[in-house]
Design a protein around this nucleic acid. Structure first.
Lengths: 157, 157
DNA sequence: TATTGTTATACTCTATAACTATA
DNA sequence: TATAGTTATAGAGTATAACAATA
């Protein structure tokens, strides 16, 4: 089923090949997590909102959009659905009335805390074939990759 | 802007943390490539179709769906749009008339060949901070990760 | 004027399920 | 009966652009 390419030493194709592999891995893993979340009535972007707000409460919608790398119009719709589901609340800022401060509801926080261990188990199980000592190496390489993608970076084409 | 987490030695969180980093990297890179493709009138799934058919011609729609990890109904719609754009053709199989054999049109193939070097440059540039010798390591680790995700693998939750 | 958030619009992707034609 | 592809339906995500309220 999966195309096991022989290791090509050609450095010009190494980067694209690695990116394609990253996409493959991401697709499969994301599908698995989506299934897990779907049974709990959540989508992946909604999970990202829960995860973000569980760490940083009281950020604005614009800031949330920045964290999730999407537009404010987009995040507005996602928040509509989550507010309807009772997972998040928008609270008008005291000083600047243009701004909404975002927070998880108790229900939202409880749900996130309840699902987080299972989420961790799924990821750990999926990565069981990666040697433990290499997991941090993988993190480091992905981090380096991401640093080459900062928005102010000049890119070809 | 980007949250640079300190290296946490806790092995229980290493895998989820690495997965989150993979998602971040994938999101940013995918957005960049989507912008590149959008200017050429393509979407990412459509690019995947071009890439797949450039290597394996005459596969069926079902097989293509398998390659792309989506349903046949989904791939049918994507192919509709690409056929309208003159990039792919469906040819009825001679023996089994239920089956469509897929191929790139000359236009589709020309487009793919034209864009491939730029695509490679974008990826190479994005990964320029990853040491050359580590790129194959990254490939290998992602491959191991993916192998833990084969569909017949029992997964928790 | 500039900024935050909302709304309207449009499109693509995605899945599920019912349907047709063929095997 | 089973399979390949199509179509209908539905929903979410995404972007862009125009709009309202506020600064």
């Amino acid at each position: 089923m999966s195309l096991r390419l022989p290791i090509l030493p050609d450095p010009r194709s190494a980067a694209p090949m690695t990116w394609v592999q990253l996409v493959r891995t991401h697709s499969k893993m994301a599908r698995r997590i989506e299934q897990f979340l779907d049974r709990r009535g959540l989508t992946l972007p909604q999970w990202d909102v829960l995860a973000t707000l569980s760490v940083e409460e009281n950020i604005t919608q614009q800031e949330l959009a920045g964290r999730l790398l999407v537009t404010k119009g987009n995040v507005c719709g996602v928040l509509d659905r989550m507010e309807t589901a009772g997972l998040v609340i928008r609270r008008a800022d005291d000083d600047d009335k243009r701004i909404n401060r975002l927070a998880l509801t108790p229900k939202g926080r409880k749900l996130f805390i309840k699902l987080l261990p299972d989420y961790g188990d799924i990821v750990q199980h999926a990565m069981r074939l990666v040697p433990k000592t290499d997991i941090m190496k993988l993190f480091q390489l992905l981090d380096q990759f991401e640093q080459g993608l900062e928005p102010d970076t000049a890119a070809p084409a």
